[in-house]
């Protein structure tokens, strides 16, 4: 067992977990933050993307113990004071989601893209999102959402 202490969505948490506990499991099972989804177990689909110290990572292939002491932001921590983040607003406005399963990872990844590059081109958005699979939308409205958010962030 390992004691893992993190700051998750602005709150300090500390849990005693088995050494091999993945960050996705830690978030979902230990903190009940079930907005982070697991879709593939092989770090391909990106449904599990969260931010660790501001950068997007795949929580299904990260050990919780490996990010000890980090600041983690999950989809639950993106809206502030009851107000949706511009990326969340943009996804809603452009119909960038259907079943909602890939959405948390997609949104977290897209937020990181705009932190990295302010006004990405369509091609740059599509390439950045290569690590996030969506089966519903055909990606078109996701690309539109990122562009929309770029005008607000």
């Amino acid at each position: 067992m390992t004691k893992v202490t993190l700051e998750v969505n602005g709150k300090k948490v500390s849990k005693e977990v088995p050494d091999h506990t993945l960050l996705s499991v830690f978030l979902r099972d230990n903190l009940n933050l079930t907005g982070t989804h697991v879709g593939c177990d092989t770090s391909q689909c990106g449904a599990c993307v969260v931010h660790v110290d501001g950068k997007s990572i795949k929580s299904c292939s990260t050990l919780a113990a490996d990010v000890e002491g980090s600041k983690v932001t999950t989809i639950e921590g993106l809206a502030k004071d009851g107000k949706l983040h511009p990326m969340q607003e943009a996804f809603k406005k452009t119909h960038g989601l259907q079943c909602g399963y890939c959405t948390p990872g997609m949104v977290m990844s897209a937020v990181d893209l705009l932190q990295t590059k302010k006004n990405p081109s369509d091609q740059e958005i599509r390439e950045w999102l290569e690590g996030n699979i969506c089966r519903c939308t055909g990606y078109q409205n996701i690309v539109a959402a990122v562009k929309e958010a770029a005008t607000k962030m």
Partner: peptide, 17 residues
């Protein structure tokens, strides 16, 4: 705009798992 988006976009969807 979709009524369901609020929950999905904030990680409040309730899937079986």
């Amino acid at each position: 705009e979709r009524k369901e988006d609020g929950r999905f976009l904030q990680g409040r969807g309730r899937y079986t798992a």
